[in-house]
């Protein structure tokens, strides 16, 4: 009985959640809040796609800005040079992300240890330098200025919502499928996974490609929404790559809802800190990172899940991600 009641609540909650998300920009007409909501959704997308690779498959990347920037430049250049419409261009941006991920994964997943993390960082810096110096193609540091596509924020909001939802659904399906169990097996013990006959390189590559696809789509979206990109912005280590990890770790790695909570915390706090702590806001931000990691090493969702309701717990991991180390 009790379980049934719980299930009913869950469905009720889900319907309510969807209604709130769909209705938000209609009810709240304040463009400033709409802008923050859009960035929240963008960070849900980025955090979730990083989490699929880092949290579920255990492959930590320090350079996901490589995919973000690749997507941003692909769709923007297609539009600026060939007049290719920017929203379908988002899909091509995602495909470009996959094309970048393929050789990267092939080279790096053969190796163990931190090589993948380091190579991703090198890749994103390399791409930043190439876009900066290949002036004939990319305009270099001058960047690309696009015309704004919509006056109202509503279309932007719903596209961001669709992107975030697609990323989360993709993660959910993938993690729930047999691929998800293989990824978990790889994360927990790669040797054992190989001994069981799992093609570890292939499954890691699948996770990387899906992750790259959505990160790159988010990059294209950013370019379309902000209508201006330049290499230091879209290939930023701190503002993109590290921030993606932060969203996932803060919320809870290897949990579906972790990046959502992480994105909410990051977007609202950084806006609040900017207003209230002025020059000291980055110190407060740094202290926050330290405090969360020291006191909530499994992230907000991970820590709550240990004592919270069952549905909040990590979907695949039976134990908390931290406990499996060593």
């Amino acid at each position: 009985m009790a379980a049934r009641g719980g299930k009913g609540w869950r469905w009720g909650g889900a319907v309510l959640g969807v209604a709130v998300l769909l209705g938000f920009p209609i009810v709240v007409s304040d463009v400033y809040l709409q802008h923050l909501a859009i960035f929240f959704l963008l960070w849900v997308t980025l955090g979730t796609s990083w989490n699929l690779l880092g949290g579920y498959a255990g492959q930590i990347s320090f350079g996901h800005a490589a995919f973000f920037g690749m997507g941003a430049y692909t769709s923007s250049l297609l539009f600026a040079k060939l007049g290719f419409p920017p929203w379908p261009g988002m899909l091509l941006g995602g495909v470009a992300g996959i094309l970048l991920a393929l050789p990267m994964g092939h080279i790096c997943f053969r190796l163990r240890g931190p090589f993948f993390a380091l190579s991703m960082l090198a890749l994103s810096e390399f791409l930043r330098l190439v876009t900066l110096n290949w002036r004939d193609l990319t305009e270099g540091a001058v960047g690309i200025l696009l015309p704004p596509f919509f006056i109202s924020k509503l279309p932007y909001y719903y596209i961001a919502l669709a992107l975030a939802a697609a990323t989360m659904l993709a993660t959910w399906f993938l993690v729930d499928s047999k691929v998800g169990f293989y990824l978990l097996a790889i994360r927990e013990d790669q040797d054992a996974a190989e001994a069981l006959g799992i093609d570890t390189t292939w499954y890691k590559l699948v996770a990387l490609m899906v992750s790259a696809f959505f990160s790159a789509m988010a990059g294209s979206y950013y370019a379309n929404y902000m209508a201006y990109i330049d290499p230091p912005i879209v290939f930023s280590i701190v503002d993109i790559s590290i921030a993606m990890i932060l969203v996932a770790v803060l919320g809870g790695m290897g949990t579906l809802w972790g990046p959502v909570v992480g994105a909410l915390v990051i977007v609202t706090l950084s806006e609040a800190f900017r207003a209230y702590f002025a020059a000291a806001h980055l110190i407060v931000y740094g202290v926050l990172i330290i405090v969360v990691i020291v006191f909530m090493p499994e992230g907000i969702v991970g820590s709550l899940a240990a004592r919270g309701p069952r549905w909040l717990r990590p979907r695949v991991a039976t134990d908390a991600p931290g406990a499996s180390q060593g």
Partner: peptide, 11 residues
């Protein structure tokens, strides 16, 4: 607490 290495790096 045997935290994940990425947590230490983020720290």
């Amino acid at each position: 607490a045997r935290a994940l290495p990425e947590n230490q790096i983020l720290l």
